[in-house]
Every structure is written in C-alpha cells, then in structure tokens.
Design a protein around this nucleic acid. Sequence first.
RNA 1: GGCCCCAUCGUCUAGAGGCCUAGGACACCAGGUUCUCAUCCUGGCAACACGAGUUCGAAUCUCGUUGGGGUCACCA
Length: 467
Amino acid sequence: MVRTRIAPSPTGFPHIGTVYQALFDYAFAHKYDGQFLVRIEDTDRGRFVEGAEDAIFSALDWFGLSEDESPRKAGPHAPYRQSERLEIYQKHAEDLLEKEHAYYCFCSKERLEEVRNKMQAEKKIPMYDRHCRNISLADAKARIQAGETAVIRMKIPDNEKIVVPDGIRGDVIFDSSVVDDQVIVKTDGFPTYHLAVVVDDHTMEVTHVLRGEEWLSSAPKHILLYQYFGWTAPEFFHTPLIRNPDKSKLSKRQGHTSVTWYKEHGFLPEAILNYLALMGWTHPEEKDIFAFEEFIKLFEFKDLKPLGPVFDLKKLEWMNGQYIMAMQPETLKQHILDFNKDVQLDEAIVEKSIPLVRERMKTLPDYLAIAQFLFTRPTTYEKDLTESKELLMKVHTKLATVESWQAEVIGDAMVSLAGELGVSNSQFFMTLRVAISGNKITPPLNDSMELLGKDECLARLEIAAKQ
RNA sequence: GGCCCCAUCGUCUAGAGGCCUAGGACACCAGGUUCUCAUCCUGGCAACACGAGUUCGAAUCUCGUUGGGGUCACCA
C-alpha cells in the first residue's frame, strides 16, 4: 500500500514549492494505485489566513493533482484538518507523559529568552536547559490543577546517535546532544508541528513522506517520537529546495513563488508540471517533454537528486511554447478565449488566427501582443508612412480588383505589383504590413489580410495613406 | 558559530572506475529557409570547485579544503 500526502499550512498564497511536492506525491501514489492526501496543518492560529485553504485546493485542481482524501473529500481518517484533531494529539501527548518520554514545562517566555541569551553569549547552541525536566508528573498535574500554565516537551536522550533514513541521500546521522527538548504541545493546547505530523502520518497510514529539505534537521525528533510511540516510521524523502538564481531559497523578491503568478502570466499547468518534474529528476531517455501519464509510469522517489535546482523561467517559457504548439487548435482557442475573457474576443477570428499565432506564442498573453490588430484597427504606426501614401493607394487600387480574397491570391497580386513598381519585396511588404497592422512584426501578412477581409483591408489602407 | 545536506557547461542535467578528446536540453552566438517575427535546419561557445590519496587507470571511490544551501521558536 502506498499513501502519500502534502501537508500545507493555510498561511498565504499557494506556493509553487507545494506543487513541486504534490507532483511527486501524486505521481507516486497513482503509480502504485495508492492514495494521495491533503492534510491542512493549521495549528498556528496566529498565522492563519482566511481563504488560504480554498486557494490550495483550487491550485491543486488547476494542475490536475486532486487528492483522494482531504477536508473537502471524505476519507477513513477524517478529520484532515489539524485544528479538528486536538483530542487525538492530547491523547498521544498524555501517552508520552505516562511513559516519561515527555514532561510538563512551566518556564515563562521571559526565562526561556534569558536562557537563550545567556547561552548565545557563551557561544553555545541556544537550547532549553531542561529546567523542568525532573518535575514529577504528579507534581506537574497538581500545579496545572492549581492554575499554572505549561507546555509539554519531549525528552531527548543524552549522547545517542539518531539515524534518519532518507530515501534520497541515505542514512543521515545526528547526535542527540544537538537536539533540543522540543515543545510538542503549546500552552494553548495546540500541538506543534512535530507532534502533529508524527501522529497524523501514522494514524493516517502515510507510507512515504516527501517534504522539503528544511525538515531534515528536525527529522531526528520525529524518529524519536516514532520510537516513543512504538510505531514504524514511514519512509522519508527530503527534497531539495527550489532556488533563486543566486542559489538562495526561492523567494518572491527574486523569483515567482505564487501559483497565481504563473496562471496570470499565461503558463499552462501541464507545462509547469513537466518543467517541475525535470528539477531533480531525469527521464530515462533524457526526454524533456513528456506526458504526465508517462511521468507517473516512470517516476520513483529514489531517482530524485539531492541537489537544489535553480528555477529557470526561460526554460519554462520555452516549454510552455512547446505545449502551445502541440495543443489541439480547438483547445488553444478555448485557452485564449478564457485567458482574455475580460475583452470578449470574436471567437471566429480567434479560431482562424490559431495557425498564424501558435508557433509565435510562448505564453497566453502573447496572443494579444501578436494578434491584437486582427480585432482592432491600428492607432499608431511603428513606421513613418508619410512617404508611402502613393504606394499605399496603388496597393489599394490593385487590391480592389482582387476577386477571390485568399492569401495566395493576395500575395500574388502584391508580388506582381511590387515588381511593376520596382520596389523590393521586403520594403514593399514592410510598408504594407505596418499600414495594415501598425506593427513591424506580425504573423504572415497575406494570411492576416485574408482573415481581416477585403473591405477592412481597403479601409485600413485608406486610413494609413492619410497619415 | 554548532549541526546537517550538497558540489559536472550561465541554468536543468546524463554520467554509478576504462565506452568521456564529458553527452543532451534551455539560454546565448553564427549561418541557412523566409515579405517581418516566429517555426524549422546547420554549426559554435561553454563544465567535472581545489588538493591529497586508492588504482595500471577517477567526473565517477576515500579524506581534507573551499564554496553554496538548510536548520538551530510555544512557525510550519
């Protein structure tokens, strides 16, 4: 049985890093007919952001990485929101307390602060000094009964080697002396990540835990917790973090972390997924472009590399362009229409323009940049046409005689006219191009003119000649 | 700073001792096709961080150095 999960916190916009994780989790679970679940880690009430949870799910849906179990999809291990699982954590914390693997701590924030400062001043690693570690459970309970507030900390053993088996880099060994007596239940009764993640992954029967490398250093705490509970730990895979061009962790300042950004800038979810899959993983045949189904068939966690890759927007753009070129015209039309729904494009024109623009687009907004002139007359001209009035009127006269308004016929007429006038093709067509579109760079002119229609072209020529 | 992870072209990577005068993709440059742009085709630039070992032989194994990253909360 394979069960994977992502465990995002509803603390902001959906992060591309979360999608990166979900991609592998989803692929792996589906490859082995397992389940992929989403658990919402909302134990930090201070950082909770309204609407963030919905945003996570719509991002997942957009990418086609929808989960099998989650708060919005009933499953055998509901609830899937940590804030609704408090009794479960309390029960397990109690268990740890009984087994003397955890203890109540009454230290104030101020005292903790002092201890930290002192240790820092002594150039020691700031760690809890275990001040409350030897208070008996009975005494502690009495104090709580009397109204004192406390957190629960886990007991870390002295001088023990803790082995974290990592599926990507092998066994990682930590000395327990560098691990702090971690708080596992806060004064507000909420668990911290460490307790919640272990309890949930176990009770939800998660078999493979894929998470960012930033968790590696706290993994020994989790290993210990599994031991304390007497549970078998899942397999861990700590994935490298996606980086900025300067190799630091991907940030808003240097890169684009929000899924929304990619959507708004006309990137296709399948292209993003394909690109992301290539970060740390290689297709056996070194293919760059492959279908998601193929990826699912091929992917193994163990093939992931431990190196933190730099996000290269240029390559994503190229890949997006590849997907656009390979797309069914009908599908591309729909994408263009959806992307520009605010401006209500004429569907018939969009449809006819697809063959003209598809290999010129890298992202969806490129469409209007290229094809705007098919919908609206130019208001400015990228080339001065004052010297070309005569030429344009001759073109007008010539075109007025064209009976069959087709690209090829238009083209023939133009070429012959250019010949008659002794104007080079490139000069001739450039002038005409600007007169019709306003732009120096356009899709093939004859086809564009066919699409525009005879009347419209003649009208535009007249207007341009008046410049 | 302690601990942990990592180290092949600018970027993503192939490479699991001889197949490597290190391969592919993006980017970049040059040329060709073309009425512009794009597509497409040809070619080019460009890397094993450094130093010791081990070995007949190292990008591949070991150690060290350097560099980069992560982490040291009642946040996840």
